[in-house]
């Protein structure tokens, strides 16, 4: 499902040049439940953004869901983001002036679904993440865990095959974090979605099928436990 070959991504140039990913190659099968771990600045977010088609300034090839992302223009990548992947962030990134339903149907502005369709879909996914009773709540009226559920619902809106989560539990207490991860597990197991999550709380991901450990932009083998 995901095939990265010799991906190199650097920021800046000359003296201040940082190598965020250095000749990285890896494969992730469809339906996997992946964690990406590593120290701060090791390139985890950079990797996620490349897989999600949000970043295209790299060398090497990235194939995701049968598309060669390194070859696509902005329009195609935008379409890819709206149809194939769903992003979940540490800081939720909900729009404060919109209620849960509107936040979730935000992608519809760009995908062209009509309003009734979009609202119906948004309701479905909000029910799926357990927020049937909060459809019209504003983000300020929701707890951290609920906000992250809204964000997950938004990621699910476009019926993606892949969920990319960047430290999704980073802003949540351990119990709430565990519930969010349970939600990801169920999306992975029941709905067959591939889930890739960057985390500093590896212990929460007991059911991960694959772990990618990055240091200085490279994959490192785990020291034997």
């Amino acid at each position: 499902m995901i095939q990265l070959d010799h991906i190199t991504r650097s920021y800046g140039s000359g003296e201040g040049k940082t190598l965020a990913l250095a000749d990285l190659s890896l494969q992730i099968p469809s339906g996997a439940f992946v964690t990406i771990v590593g120290t701060s600045g090791s390139g985890k977010t950079t990797l996620l953004n490349i897989i999600g088609g949000l970043d295209s300034n790299y060398t090497g090839t990235a194939r995701v869901a049968d598309q060669d992302l390194s070859q696509q223009d902005d329009r195609t990548l935008s379409k890819f983001r709206s149809q194939t992947v769903g992003f979940v962030f540490q800081h939720f990134n909900l729009l404060e002036h919109l209620d849960a339903l509107q936040n979730v149907s935000l992608p519809a502005f760009f995908s062209g679904q009509d309003e009734a369709q979009a609202t119906a879909r948004a309701e479905d996914v909000l029910v799926r993440v357990g927020l049937a009773h909060k459809l019209h709540s504003l983000p300020t009226e929701l707890s951290g865990g609920q906000k992250q559920r809204v964000a997950i619902a938004r990621a699910l809106f476009g019926q993606p095959r892949l969920i990319l989560a960047d430290e999704p539990t980073g802003n949540l207490d351990t119990t709430t974090g565990a519930q969010i991860i349970a939600l990801f597990e169920s999306l992975n197991q029941e709905d067959g979605l591939t889930v890739i999550a960057v985390t500093h709380e590896e212990f929460l991901f007991k059911n991960a099928t694959l772990k990618i450990h990055l240091e200085d932009g490279r994959m490192v083998d785990e020291p034997p436990a």
């Binding site: 902005d74 329009r75 983001r81 992003f87 809106f157 476009g158």
Partner: peptide, 16 residues
């Protein structure tokens, strides 16, 4: 800025 980033992540193109 952040909101624009978010819109891009849910499928907005530059032209949008």
């Amino acid at each position: 800025k952040r909101e624009i980033g978010l819109l891009r992540s849910v499928g907005a193109s530059r032209a949008d």
